[in-house]
């Protein structure tokens, strides 16, 4: 039996706005096993980044439980939280905005070590910084450079080195490669896979790019408007998607090959607003299989066996709606 590192139960995050309550994350359940990568995909505004931040308590959850190594971290006080942060780290999306422009690379990477008073001697700390730079493939001569002197790929390596500094067990990767060109993206993805093998890391990998998510993940969760609509291992997700939204999402990916012809499901309309969402299935307005029940009753995430979970009233029995 695999060991669960993190388990999230009925997690909610609501924001109060002028127009009403924004349900960014609305009752999300998932778990991540040790050494595994869980991919979290969805379109802008579906709540995937918010989920990542709430899990680290960078945002306070409205409701729910976050069990990390058997303990609910939402119950932790300040001191315990600080200890917890050593175990849980994050790599941010934008390598241009997430590094302080006035700090040198060594200062940026050393900051978590300084804050947590890991080393008493400067020499030891410098040694660790150099070691981290080597781990992520940054040349030692860059140690006193500033972020603006570097390109996006190298900056993202700094972000990764900083996240690794305290030897965490768990890292939230919040769209770590979406700001990078494809050839650099591939370098960073390979680096992250190597680090995972070397240090036994567990990742929550957040992205909107399904081909990247498929490449890195063991299991994938698809989010739509604050809810997980489908969760399964990556091959079953791609070969046998059950939720109508997952099906549409997968069919919409432009594939860089010309030998594959497939049916494309074009969804009508846009993602509706997450402010005061109505009762019923969130996908109702865009679904081509919708029935009356979908409008009135919110579908729960159901266990379909083989670790596959789907939130749809008509799983396995989809018939196009007669509109």
């Amino acid at each position: 039996m695999q060991e669960r590192l993190l388990e999230v139960r009925n997690l909610k995050k609501h924001f109060s706005t002028k127009k009403g309550m924004l349900h960014a994350v609305d009752g999300v359940n998932f778990f991540i096993n040790k050494g595994e990568t869980l991919g979290l995909v969805g379109e802008s505004g579906c709540g995937k980044s918010t989920t990542g931040r709430v899990v680290l308590r960078l945002l306070e959850a409205t409701e729910g439980e976050i069990i990390f190594e058997g303990k609910d971290i939402l119950q932790y006080n300040k001191q315990q939280q600080r200890e917890m942060r050593k175990e849980m780290q994050i790599v941010f999306q934008d390598p241009f905005a997430s590094l302080n422009p006035r700090m040198t690379i060594s200062e940026i990477i050393a900051e978590p070590l300084v804050v947590n008073k890991v080393f008493s001697s400067k020499v030891d700390m410098q040694k660790r910084v150099k070691e981290l730079m080597e781990t992520v493939g940054l040349a030692e001569r860059l140690i006193n450079a500033y972020p603006h002197e570097l390109d996006g790929g190298r900056r993202q390596r700094i972000g990764i080195a900083r996240a690794l500094a305290l030897k965490p067990k768990f890292i939230v990767q919040d769209e770590p490669v979406s700001a990078l060109d494809v050839s650099i993206q591939a370098q960073i993805l390979n680096l992250m896979a190597d680090l995972q093998d070397e240090f036994g890391l567990t990742y929550l990998f957040i992205s909107h790019d399904l081909s990247v998510v498929k490449h890195v993940s063991d299991r994938i969760a698809v989010m739509y408007l604050g809810k997980i609509v489908e969760l399964s291992d990556y091959s079953s997700m791609f070969n046998n998607p059950l939720h109508p939204y997952t099906q549409a999402l997968l069919s919409a990916i432009p594939i860089p090959r010309i030998d594959i012809k497939r049916e494309r499901i074009i969804l009508e309309g846009d993602v509706p607003s997450p402010i005061n969402p109505p009762e019923g299935c969130r996908f109702y307005g865009r679904c081509r299989y919708r029935q009356d029940i979908c409008k009135n009753k919110t579908p729960e995430l159901k266990d379909m066996g083989n670790d596959k979970y789907v939130a749809c009233h008509f799983t396995n029995n989809l018939k196009p709606a007669t509109v």
Binding site: D151, D181, S183, I184, A186, S211, H215
Partner: peptide, 23 residues
């Protein structure tokens, strides 16, 4: 090299084959 850098959605590959170096 560009084709090698893109994760292939139809097949499983362990590692990508990126182009080395930078623009």
């Amino acid at each position: 090299g560009l084709f090698g850098s893109i994760p292939d959605i139809k097949e499983d590959e362990d590692r990508l084959k990126p182009i080395k170096g930078l623009m």
